[in-house]
Simulated assay, not measured.
Amino acid sequence: MADDYDYLIVGGGMVADAAARGIRERDASGSILILSDDVDEPYTRPALSKKLWTDPDFAWADNDLHTAAETGAEIRLSTHVDRIDRAARTITTGTGETVGYGRLLLATGGRPKTLDLPDDDGVIYFRTASDYRHLRDLAGSGRHVAVVGGGYIGSEIAAALAQNDTRVTIVFPDDDLGGSTFPADVDERFESRFRDHGVSFLAGRRLASAAASGDGFTLTLDDGSTLDADGVVIGLGIEPNTDLASGAGLQVDDGIVVDARLATSDPFVYAAGDAANYPDPILGRRRVEHVDNAQEQGAVVGRIMAGSDEKYTHTPMYYSDVFDLGYEAVGRLDSSLETVEDWKDDDSVVVYYLDDGVPVGVLLWNVWDSTDKARQVLAEGSALTADNLVGMI
């Protein structure tokens, strides 16, 4: 194995795959090394809570991104990077190996938010392909799984399990599932899909503790009530992995701070994906944890590392599929903001979210092929008002 690489990528997710492909657009022969904590080579993360549960013709082999075969990158799995020596331009792994780099990309992603729960195989903090396989083994056959968290990932996991012969109870702090995201009329339709599929709600509740009980668990909620389940899935979001960057003296502020070229304060070190805090040209500085950003940002940073003079100018979208409905969105969705609803039919609506009268988010509920129009609305910003938004999309 070489001790020095032209391009070194820390993190083995979709950003790493996209970056390797971006590098190859400009540099056909430069050496690429991907160091990953994961036990699997890069795969598509959204399928872990969507397609792998709902499409019987989509197998795990279809989820492999074939990064090594298609880019020539070397991939080392189960490898943790402990520190960066910026002066020497090297990293050191947990096993003491030192590797040099010409350009370094931190695609370190995030780690699930955790609770003080037993360290048990029946408690799953859902994030990786290993977690997916583990949950597959736990689900089905009428077993009862408690999902803690009613946000983006919690709702998708609950829907996936409910469609795979699993009894589901979802525990969440809001009064309504999706209530912090969607306006009331949209949220009513969202909730109804879960109820129609037999999902039980424990609204306005948080998990206080859990204890092993026979082959399962007894969960105690913050009101003192209890719930028995065969397994527990925690879907409370993630925290960006910034320890490596901060330990190297790079600026960290809700992620690794980068400029429009995705470079840190060190011109040889870049960051992209879930862990990167970057300047969006429309919405300002932000950190985005969705696949569109991972793919687009990864490809751009790869080309930049290989000599491109471009900047990252994409404003990413995100999407979700639960049961028979789906939505796409751009920007900030927060039901506490002023909203304008433009219903297309009984189950299709565009919702505009306004902060101080300025559009900052667009929800496309069962409305498709309109994310570019949504970006245009946000780009026009203060030129638009609540009175002239209806009909824009």
Rank of each mutant, 00 (worst) to 15 (best):
L389V: 01
T90D: 04
L219N: 10
T339N: 03
V145W: 02
V330E: 06
A20M: 06
T385A: 12
P56A: 09
W365C: 00
V258L: 08
R193H: 14
R285E: 07
R45N: 02
V340R: 05
E74F: 05
V300K: 12
I234K: 08
H144F: 02
D356Q: 13
D280M: 06
T98K: 13
L389W: 10
V81M: 03
D223G: 09
D215W: 03
D280T: 07
G361H: 03
A162L: 04
A19L: 07
G22V: 10
Y101Q: 09
A28H: 11
D116H: 11
E156F: 04
E296P: 04
T220K: 09
L364E: 02
A245V: 08
D187L: 00
H80D: 07
T166V: 09
R285Q: 12
P359K: 13
L138F: 11
V148I: 14
D57N: 08
I75R: 08
D62G: 00
Y352L: 04
A260C: 05
L333V: 01
V269H: 06
W365V: 02
H290E: 04
L35P: 13
P281W: 01
R24F: 06
A68L: 07
T93E: 04
Y319L: 12
H80M: 05
I170Y: 00
N293I: 14
G357W: 10
G151A: 12
D243E: 09
G381R: 09
A28E: 13
D175Y: 00
M305Y: 06
D228G: 11
L104K: 01
G247Y: 00
D266K: 02
D346Q: 11
R136W: 06
R285C: 03
F182I: 10
L283Y: 05
D215M: 01
R83F: 00
